[in-house]
Design a protein around this nucleic acid. Structure first.
Lengths: 122, 122
DNA sequence: TAAATGTATGAACAATCATTCATATATTTA
DNA sequence: TAAATATATGAATGATTGTTCATACATTTA
């Protein structure tokens, strides 16, 4: 069995019982693309500003300037983060005159955040 | 009403109906510490290597070296990430002779990941 | 007790990221 | 149509982060 490309140094895994386990676990590992997308999604939740924006929109749709006021941050900073949230399909927007109104774009958001809360409150 | 410390520039929020909404939303915003902890938790999920480790341990407890072999990464890299996962109380460990065996330390992990999967599969 | 094995960790480095600043775009108002 | 308003965006910067490398620590084995 070829061993090139392996970055790990062989150690305990030389033992037979471990080898079998490693093969089983490796086979059940989801595709690289799924794992990447999953990490990218959680990365979006991994910022205080974005979490606050989601909490804000959880109560009501809102224009960019109002979100900035609630979070006491610049319009530019909020706008940049809204772009990230939109790319992750967590928020959507619509134009209303001069304003762009943002709102949540996914029913899972509340569940994901709730699960997170439950963990940190353990 | 004093306006210092506000980073945003007043714009649409001068209107009365927006002011009321902003106050309501601001009041319902969770404490800063909770929002910070929540973002920190999701940040831990926001890395492919750590997601893979969690998936691995989802099937079976495992020693550091075996995890490194499954992910085809160095023992050092895995060890560093296991430390992050442990600080977030997502994994726990125990010693077994020369080896340290890691396992999942929270029932919510699967739920959080499942919610994430459901979103990216939308 | 000395050597071997398995894991942890500090420092360094490259890469990523959030915010700021200046400015562009789009819509409404005068 | 010109000015005002609301939002978006590119570049720059400081901060954070994941991996590597070298090495330290802990346990077992000879």
């Amino acid at each position: 069995m070829a061993d090139k490309d392996n970055k790990h140094e062989h150690c305990c895994s030389e033992q037979h019982n471990h080898k079998e386990l490693i093969e089983t676990v490796s086979m059940d590992m989801p595709e690289e693309e799924v794992l990447y997308d999953l990490a990218e999604l959680f990365k979006v939740f991994g910022d205080t500003t974005r979490i606050k924006i989601l909490y804000t929109l959880f109560e009501s749709e809102m224009c960019v300037c109002d979100i900035a006021e609630v979070l006491n941050m610049t319009q530019s900073a909020i706008s940049h983060q809204l772009k990230v949230l939109k790319q992750a399909k967590l928020v959507k927007n619509r134009r209303d005159g001069k304003q762009i109104i943002y709102s949540l774009d996914d029913g899972h958001i509340a569940n994901i955040i709730t699960m997170g809360i439950e963990h940190i409150m353990e």
